[in-house]
Design a protein around this nucleic acid. Structure first.
Length: 645
RNA sequence: GCCGGUAUAGCUCAGCUGGUAGAGCACCUGAUUUGUAAUCAGGGGGUCGCGGGUUCGAAUCCUGCUGCCGGCACCA
């Protein structure tokens, strides 16, 4: 007999080999009907799987959050069947569950188009209506390969080959259709329900490798019920409204144009925003960093020494002058900062030396990567390089971590993901120096996690490091959940040595410093893009590029309005008067659409009483204040978080 | 860079199966002096992304390029 423990901690004995379904049926008819899977010691399994030993058992019903994964996975299978029924000869490859849904990659000679999606959806609904059971079979390796080869499914053959020898080959069938799959699945296709939608078609490389053939990927979303599906679709619509590219245009912050793919034209308001952010960062750096500025263009020879010419050449803008010298426009600030470090003799007493620069860098990014402010070809990094001894390294990394996290907190980002990227295939430096750097970084990562009290999630990205060293990546999300790397800390045991940078140690010996590359915002452009989306354009007062509009109701209040604006400006606020001959409704609407945080309405009454009528963005309420009182409270509110009491 | 889509006025978009462009908002002018998300009237504005081709005739069909959009790959 085996002993199974149920969620209420009751324990019951069963014959070995009993299935989850049989147990559910034994408990109640209704449970058996609602059951879609079981969890054995927390691991999701098919309801039909035999249970052979003692375990904690939970019957998972369709409304269990864990069932969502199964709904999506099953939907992917059904989509694959639908596609093969509609277009025989199409090969299926892989179809995993992802956040909010699923996808399946197909190989078909004709491309899929968005017009195909409703057709596939219709077929999926047919298959779901058939309500055929998902059944599992274990096949031999040869049998599986022969089967897929026969069907012309060469990708599946490759997948079978990739399954480790010690694992079984599992086949899931639904009706006549079958797929190689590790499972688990729900009991039948009918349990998928109707709350799904195919979202988009896209190209995707076989096995994520750009050297491989490109397949067609179809993305879908699936939910437990219509309400959740609609909520998700609604969320996407809302996210679209806060897309920084749309808001950038509506708020007149910046634009792009055809002659400058991936380069930003910052408009007055956008540039004000940019400068507000830069000023904030400068204040944050003042205590520990020295700000510098290194040249935009440097001789190719210097980039050869740094290793960029070898490893980064394809991403660099290069220019040749009349005298045939070849220069590169800097894609990174580090080589410049090493030159500054090298200039003049440095002592161990100078370390750690922290050189910061709001460095404008240019990178020839692949055309398909460009994306508004998030991915551009010319951007400003809030970059710095810390030259230190090995003993100081861990402390410096932690100090940087504190700076990054406190900065993000000032902008309302609380859940941060920090990942350690380790040595890539293409790299400079000895294995020994990489071993050492990664060892230090792992230790620091652990400390970061421990210190955060659960606020920080950490992870490892194997092989994702920079060519000169391992790095921490701090990731933030955009309006629709895409993740963007912002802050970064990169340990570099190579560059100082390549340039022959050294300091004189206590013992009078020349030693090579360690260099830490770091950025807080990362790219000011990207960070602003994320801020725009995060705030949906409703900036806190201190960030808003135009903070207050003083709008008149009648021209009789013009002089008073001018006076109010002058007072606001004198107090350091960014204010404008709107004296146009328009109705107040019109003015309120217009400034609300461009997301001005505060509108001060001035009519005859306010002019006589020396008051202002304040209306905040997003609220219909109005409140009357004396001019001085309004000024004082706005000034207080407009104080940047780092300067606030 | 790759796959797919797309490009019409400053913005959002219409323009059916080819017959040389249209709306709303914005802009300009005039009237209106207005109390918290669009006052009324009039007016100007587009070599339909760029280049080839098919055709008597192309915004519309074909083709090349460029930008943009969605993914993939690459990356801050």
């Amino acid at each position: 007999m085996i002993r199974l423990t149920f969620p209420d901690n009751s324990v019951r004995e069963f014959n070995p080999g009993i299935s989850g379904r049989e147990i559910a049926e034994g408990i109640s008819k209704s449970l058996a009907k609602k059951a879609v899977a079981m969890a054995l010691d927390g691991e999701l399994r098919d309801l039909a799987d035999p249970i052979e030993q003692d375990a904690r058992l939970e019957i998972v019903t369709r409304d269990d959050p864990r069932a969502l994964e199964l709904i999506r996975h099953d939907a992917a299978h059904v989509m694959a069947e639908a596609v093969q029924e509609l277009w025989p000869g199409t090969q299926v490859t892989i179809g995993p569950v992802i956040e909010n849904g699923f996808y399946y990659d197909f190989k078909r000679n004709e491309p899929f188009t968005t017009e195909d999606l409703p057709v596939i959806e219709k077929k999926m609904k047919e298959i779901i209506a058939r309500n055929q059971p998902f059944t599992k079979e274990i096949w031999s390796r040869d049998e599986a390969k022969r089967f897929f080869l026969n069907k012309g499914e060469t990708y599946k053959v490759e997948l079978v080959d990739a399954i480790p020898e010690d694992q079984t080959i599992r086949i899931y069938k639904q009706g006549d259709w079958l797929d190689l799959c590790r499972g688990p699945h729900m009991a039948s296709t009918g349990q998928i329900g109707q709350a799904f939608k195919l979202m988009k078609v896209a190209g995707a490389y076989w096995r994520g490798d750009a050297n491989n053939e490109m397949l067609t990927r179809i993305y879908g979303t699936a939910w437990a019920n219509e309400t959740e599906l609609n909520a998700y679709l609604h969320m996407l619509e809302e996210a679209e409204k806060r897309d920084h590219r749309k808001l950038g245009r509506e708020m007149d912050l910046f634009h792009f144009q055809e002659e400058g793919p991936g380069v930003v034209f910052w408009h007055p308001k956008g540039w004000t925003l940019f400068q507000t952010l830069v000023s904030y960062m400068r204040r944050r750096l003042a205590a520990d960093y020295d700000e510098v500025n290194a040249p935009q263009i440097l001789d190719k020879a210097l980039w050869e020494t740094s290793g960029h010419w070898g490893w980064y050449r394809e991403n660099m803008f290069v220019t040749e002058t009349e005298d045939e010298r070849v220069f590169a426009i800097k894609p990174m600030n580090c080589p410049g900062h090493v030159q500054i470090f090298k200039h003049g003799l440095k002592s161990y007493r100078d370390l750690p030396l922290r050189l910061a620069e709001f460095g404008a860098v240019s990178r020839y990014e692949p055309s398909g990567a460009l994306h508004g402010l998030m991915r551009v070809r010319a951007f400003t990094q809030d970059d710095a390089h810390v030259f230190c001894t090995e003993d100081q390294l861990a402390d410096e990394c932690l100090k940087i971590n504190d700076l990054i996290l406190s900065t993000y907190a000032d902008f309302g980002f609380d859940e941060i993901v920090v990942k350690l990227s380790t040595r890539p295939e293409k790299r400079v430096g000895s294995d020994a120096s990489w071993d050492h750097a990664e060892e230090v970084m792992s230790r620091v990562l652990k400390t970061i996690e421990e210190q955060s009290g659960g606020r920080i999630k950490t992870g490892i990205l194997e092989g994702e490091g920079a060519f000169y060293g391992p790095k921490f990546e701090y990731t933030l999300r955009d309006a629709i959940g895409r993740e963007w790397q912002c802050g970064t800390t990169q340990v570099d045991f190579n560059l100082p040595e390549r340039f022959g940078a050294f300091y004189v140690d206590k013992d009078g010996e020349k030693k090579t410093p360690v260099m830490v590359h770091r950025a807080i915002c990362g790219s000011m452009e990207r960070f602003l893009g994320i801020l725009i989306e995060n705030y949906a354009g409703h900036f806190p007062l201190w960030l808003a590029p135009l903070q207050v509009v003083v709008a008149t109701i009648t021209s009789e209040a013009d002089d008073y309005a001018r006076e109010v604006v002058a007072a606001l400006k004198k107090a350091g606020l960014k204010a404008e008067a709107d004296l146009r001959n328009e109705k107040i409704n019109y003015k309120v609407r217009e400034h609300s659409l461009t997301k001005v945080p505060v509108i001060l309405v001035c009519g005859k009454r306010e002019a006589e009483e020396r008051t202002v009528n304040m209306r905040r963005l997003g609220s219909r309420d109005q409140q009357s204040f004396g001019l001085d009182e309004a000024l004082a409270s706005l000034v207080k509110e407009a104080t940047p978080p780092d300067l606030a009491e």
